[in-house]
Structures are given as C-alpha cells and as structure tokens.
Design a protein around this nucleic acid. Structure first.
Lengths: 328, 328
DNA sequence: CTGAAAGCGCTTACAG
DNA sequence: CTGAAAGCGCTTACAG
C-alpha cells in the first residue's frame, strides 16, 4: 500500500479511502490512486484489514476431519452463502484423524474469531464452544447451549431399529459413536427405545463403543462377528463405521444380508455405491450445512428470528444390506 | 495478550516468548505466564501473528465453486496434509455460480498470500496466477507456467470417444467445457483425434460450447436433442453437464441409452447413482488434490524434486448410459 | 479534500 | 533473563 501511495503521490490514508470507496476524495486523486493500484497490481491484505476493522464479512467453519460427511455439509454451507456478501473460510487442521482433543476446535475458533471472522460454524465440536462472535454448532455435544443444527437423531435411531425388528431380528448389535456428541447419544437412545417398545431386552455386550472414526469400528465389528452367538444384525451409528463393518464381514466370509444384516446412519454417497447398498438413515448433511449457514448469517447480522436449536427430519433409506434373518 | 501480561506481571514480549516456547525465560516466569494464560483462556490471534511473522505454517486453497468435484479434491488435500505440520485454510467466495471472473482467484490469492498463507492451491483458475508464495494449480489454464496437477485429459477424451465409436456411433456430439482451461481443450482435442483416427469427419454443429457449470449444458443439450438429425451419442466434458443432459433427455422422453448414449468426464459420486449409471472417465479428483498438496508442501519447504507439471492417469468407467445405437 | 498519528495484536532485534 | 520500542499492513478519528 505504501508503494501505491508513493507512486500516486498521496498518503496511505488516502489510498485506503479510495480502496474502500469512502467519501471525500477528489475525483482526480481517485483516478491517480486507481491507476497506481492498477499499475502495481495491488491488493489489500485480508489479514491487515481484518486486524484493524471489526467487521470482515468473512464467516468461518471449523472442522477436524474432512470426509464425505463434511464435504456434504460444506456444499450446503457454500450454497447458503451464495450472494450473501459473506465469504467463507474453512479451517482444517493437519492432525486429521488425531485424537479428538477437546482443545482443538476451541483453540482454532479463538484464533479465527479474534479478528478474522464475524462468526463461525463448528462441525461436531468436542466441547461447548465459546467465542466473542456468534457460533452455530452442527451436531453439538450433549446439553450444549450453543445455537445448533442437528438431524432428528432420536427418530433416526428408532426408525432403523424398528426396521430391523420388523424384518424379524432380535439380536441386534449397536456400534456407538463418540459418546459426548448429542447425535451419538440420541442414536443410541433410539436403539434402546425401539428395543424396549418391542419388548426385546437390551444386551449390553451387544453395544460396542466406537467414536465415529471409521477405523474405530474395525476391531469392534470383528469382535461382534467372531462371537459364537453372533448377532443377526448390526446397526452402526454412522455410515463410515458401517462400511468398515461391511468390509470386515467380507473378510470373515460372512454374507450380507444373508448371514448378517447391516445398517448405518448418515446416507453418505458411498452408501449407495457399496455392494450390497447400505440401509441407512438419510440426515441430509447438505441441509444441515445450509441451515447452519443461514442461521449464522442472520445471527451475525443481528436479525435471527427462529429458534436457536434446529432439528431437521430424517428418512429411512432401505437398501440391500438388510433382510430377514436366516431361520435356523 | 496485554491482559495476560498484566495478570502475570510481565511484558507482552515475555508472554510472546512463553507462547512460542522461545529460550531464555526463567522457569518461574514461565509458570506465572502459563497460569495467567490458563486463567484467561488466552489464544494468540492467528491474524496478528501472521501479520508479524513470515512463516505461518498455513496453506491456502482457493476455489470458486463447491461441488462434488471440489469436495473430492479437498479430501485428497486434507489427507496429504495430515500430520504435515501445515494447517489448511480454504477460501470460498460467496459468489458461487457467478461469472467466472478472471479477477476473483487472483484477488483472493493476493489477499491470502500477502501474509496468511505460506503457499496456495488454486482449483481451476481462470488465468495464470502469480504470487509471492508458491502456487500449485489443479487444472490450470492453457499454456500455464505455474506448477500444476491434472489428469491425462487428452487420453481421457480420446478413450471415451473411442468407446462410443466402438459401439457403432458415428454422430457423436460434444458439449465442451470452459475453453480457457487446459482440461477442456484437451478433452475436446481427444474427441477430435478419436474421430479423425476413425475416419469420421468432425461436424462443427455437433460441438456445443458449455463452461463446466452444469446449468450451462441445459439449453445446449436441448438444442442437440431437438435436431431432426439428432446425434446418437453425446459426450459432455464433465459429469455435471452430462447429468444435466440426462435430465433433459428424460424431459424430452428420450430413453438413454436406447435413443441416445451419454458419456461424461470426472466420475463424481453422483455418476454411479443416477439411472442409468453414467459412463465416464475417472480422473481421481482425490489424487489430484493429494498430489497437489504434496507438491505444494515440498515447494514451500524448498525441497521439491519432481517435475512441476504432473499428469495423472485416467480410467474409462463404462456404465449403463452408453450402448450401441439403435439400427434404423 | 488530505495528511500525520495512533493503534489493531502480535514478534523480534536491541539494550540492559 | 526481561522490557521498551519498532514495525507487520492496514483504518480511522483528528486536525488542518
């Protein structure tokens, strides 16, 4: 900027005024500055500007992983921000599948919202976030008070287990997700309620503790499938984990759905591609992202009228991976 | 930071030293500062830090759209950066499907690379980018001199048209992509060469000018399908456009592949889901992203040994949307 | 209409 | 071992 000022023969203050279209600059000066900018190919530094200004018109999104789930959410977020006047910055840390350290999101949120962003979306945070700018959480932790958007995970868990029960399954295992997430807890709760309603007692040994990371499901699925009294169906709390379970079943020479029915949750694109197709719960991650962005936008502008906790409907998607259990 | 300094009874310089783990601070002072940081929940501002420092350990990615293609690329980029010590910032502008303005990427690149990022990946840039930090382009413009990663688009275009020729098609239309992109040009060149090799003259009226934006294909596909001398096959330069053409065909009551064969390019997840499945060229967008990130990382670290233009192999994926033409 | 100066939150020589 | 001061690239009252 100082180069521009020198070339145009004015102060940096004036250059700044021209760049930001402030009133009170003579036409001839504007022309001079413009031509100097053009000549030098000058662009103002986002960083310096945001350090000085309070409003940046940039929204942030913090996510610790970058799998199908996140990609779908992102599409929704981007769509909601189209023509909104807000740009989007996504911050992903390098420690992709690292420990789900409580601190990560909080730290990066703070680093961004200090000055760079006017507000942030946090995907599956590991704790209750706090910031001096608005936040919207997608899939918050349990008992979160932060504005949030989630699918109706309770209904989803119930529906898919009811589907398995209706097929005739009674020994239904569950691979749980990260237990501090509300979504994981409600899916499990749905599982329990559906069983209870059907008068099927919950067998605690059939509940395996995963963490939504697909890899975490591998040993759990193997253990369940190796049992003498193998369950006839497994419901995994995410498609990522269910797909890993499907791989394990193939390794073990189990046919799905012949020997074992398998169901997931999310409906990521891969679930329609695998063989057999995965029965799952569609939670429209796209809409999760879309609604979160819409909410954040209004929150930042101070004109949000809706509720602070949004719950979106789900839909059971039945594919080839579930069928009636083999009669003994 | 000044709050921390005050609470700990030291200068901000000392706080900075503690935060950054610099040598030459007494153990007791470190403890004091640490506890003040803890107490206040202090996090250094990314913006302020990057303004002052030259190296930030943050890599940038600039993209103007956010569709399936981008999402796949992103997964690869994120994977390549895992445990690399680099964080990733993705910048997406709000003007999603706006005009492909030459200026956009250039402007944002400048705004980021000024201080925030140590280097950037640019996806399908609209011009040749220039920056004071390293850049890697995914799908660059023609005759670009910037380091880049692309699929073997020439082979891809040739292969898919050879496939159509082998099925017996002779009137094969082509819906082109953004002509300034090397990828678009090479796909078209592949189309031309395959026809030439087979001794089929190119009919210029069968070449429609799209721009990779799926919507751009709608009127073009309609025009091609409305012709009395309708082509028996259409090859679209991207799956996004091909899928739109498929929709148009359905609207018009044309059966695919009965009345018309359809092929695309990219192999986005949706191409396997549509009905019929889309015959296409798999260019592994994941690997595009992965290789670009690997290259950028080394470029920034100053230890890149490989070539500056990487071309990745492609693979023809035959699905239900192509078949022999109906014999008249 | 324009410039000199202060300051956004940091880091880093330079003194001590 | 620690602090005062300068400066990263901007913007914005405050004078003039």
């Amino acid at each position: 900027m100082s180069d521009v000022a020198r070339l145009a023969g004015v102060s940096t203050a004036t250059v700044s005024r021209v760049v930001n279209g402030r009133y009170g600059v003579s036409a001839s000066t504007i022309a001079q500055v413009r031509s100097a900018i053009e000549h030098l190919g000058y662009e103002s530094s986002l960083v310096a500007t945001s350090l000085r200004r309070s409003r940046t018109n940039v929204l942030g999104l913090v996510s610790h992983s970058f799998q199908s789930y996140t990609a779908e959410v992102l599409k929704g977020v981007a769509e909601a921000l189209t023509q909104s006047g807000f740009d989007l910055i996504i911050y992903a840390n390098s420690d992709l599948y690292g420990t789900y350290s409580e601190g990560w999101e909080r730290r990066h949120l703070a680093r961004l919202s200090g000055t760079l962003t006017d507000g942030c979306i946090v995907i599956t945070p590991s704790g209750d976030m706090r910031s001096n700018t608005p936040i919207v959480a997608i899939d918050p932790v349990r008992d979160s008070t932060v504005p949030s958007v989630t699918a109706d995970n309770l209904a989803g868990g119930t529906t898919v287990v009811e589907h398995l029960l209706a097929l005739g399954h009674r020994r239904i295992a569950f691979i749980a997700g990260r237990s501090n997430l509300e979504a994981a807890w409600l899916r499990e709760e749905g599982y329990r309620r559906a069983l209870a309603s059907a008068g099927v007692p919950v067998d605690p040994t059939l509940i395996a503790r995963g963490d939504f990371n697909p890899e975490s499901a591998v040993p759990l699925a193997r253990a369940l499938m190796d049992r003498e009294d193998r369950p006839t169906a497994i419901f995994a709390a995410s498609d990522g984990m269910a797909l890993k379970a499907l791989e394990v079943a193939k390794e073990l020479g189990l046919s799905v759905p012949g020997d074992l029915s398998l169901a997931g949750f999310d409906n990521i694109p891969e679930s329609a591609l695998c063989d057999p197709g995965l029965t799952t719960v569609d939670q429209s991650m796209y809409r999760l992202g879309f609604e979160a962005a819409r909410m954040l936008r209004s929150l930042v502008n101070g004109n949000w009228e809706g509720p602070h906790q949004i719950v979106l409907p789900i839909r059971l998607v039945v594919r080839g991976s579930t069928a009636a259990p083999r009669t003994p």
